[in-house]
């Protein structure tokens, strides 16, 4: 078979026109997912069963099922319910973009909350005892001791999850969104050249991964300044 280089040159700019959607999915779900993760984490470590139990159920469901299935359930399943069609969220859930953001947020929130919990559990008990002995309240210890230390501990795993999230945005193309992958699929349908187009697409994703890795590397170095000053 032949490998058509000119097709690559032509398709890359077209696919890049979808990078805006990819970024929107990534940053919006990343931010909302992080907020959700913190809420789930606080629920889990609250010590109150009626808070920790729902959080655990959420985490179990969203880690235990494929993200693609989650996207389908939200996109095809939710509109079946009249109360959802009548709700204030309908303008968002009616759109594939809103459904994709919702699915990615719920999914990444579950994973990230477990990552954050690992960080919180990794904080040396002695440091927190020193805080107690100095008279800090539970809340003050959480804000001034646990949070900064846990953030540093959790960052490497978090950066991996963020990369997973970036790649998972491509699944939004299955519900008609024209992100980079969605555009690639359109081009393939027109040109019948899946090989060239998808390899070009893979290269773009790899570059994005590299940039994310570098960025997190910098943040990690900053947060670790007190470990290797």
């Amino acid at each position: 078979m032949s490998f058509d280089l000119s097709l690559i040159y032509e398709s890359i700019p077209r696919m890049l026109s979808g990078i805006g959607i990819t970024f929107q999915l990534m940053f919006l779900s990343g931010l909302l997912g992080l907020i959700l993760a913190v809420i789930l984490l606080l629920m889990r470590i609250s010590g109150k069963w009626y808070l920790s139990w729902p959080a655990q159920v959420h985490i179990y469901i969203f880690r235990g099922t494929p993200i693609l299935v989650q996207i389908f359930i939200i996109y095809y399943g939710l509109p079946q319910f009249e109360f959802i069609r009548d709700s204030v969220f309908w303008p968002i859930l009616r759109e594939p973009f809103g459904c994709a953001v919702l699915a990615l947020t719920l999914n990444t929130g579950a994973y990230v909350s477990e990552i954050l919990r690992g960080g919180v559990l990794g904080v040396d008990r002695g440091i927190l005892e020193a805080g107690s002995a100095l008279g800090l309240s539970a809340r003050q210890k959480f804000i001034y001791l646990t949070t900064p230390i846990a953030a540093r501990l959790a960052l490497p795993a978090y950066s991996n999850d963020f990369i997973s999230l970036m790649k998972a945005t491509s699944l939004a193309s299955t519900i008609t969104l024209l992100d980079m992958t969605g555009i690639a699929r359109t081009i393939v349908a027109q040109t019948f050249a899946p090989y060239e187009v998808f390899i070009s697409l893979a290269i773009i994703y790899m570059i994005l991964t590299w940039i994310i890795q570098k960025t997190f590397g910098r943040i990690e170095k900053y947060l670790s300044r007190y470990v290797n000053p």
Binding site: A130, A133, L134, G135, R152
Partner: peptide, 17 residues
Amino acid sequence: RREVGMVFQSFNLFPHM
């Protein structure tokens, strides 16, 4: 706790400050 200070075997300084 305001009246009682404590010093630990493993120092327990806040490493990030």
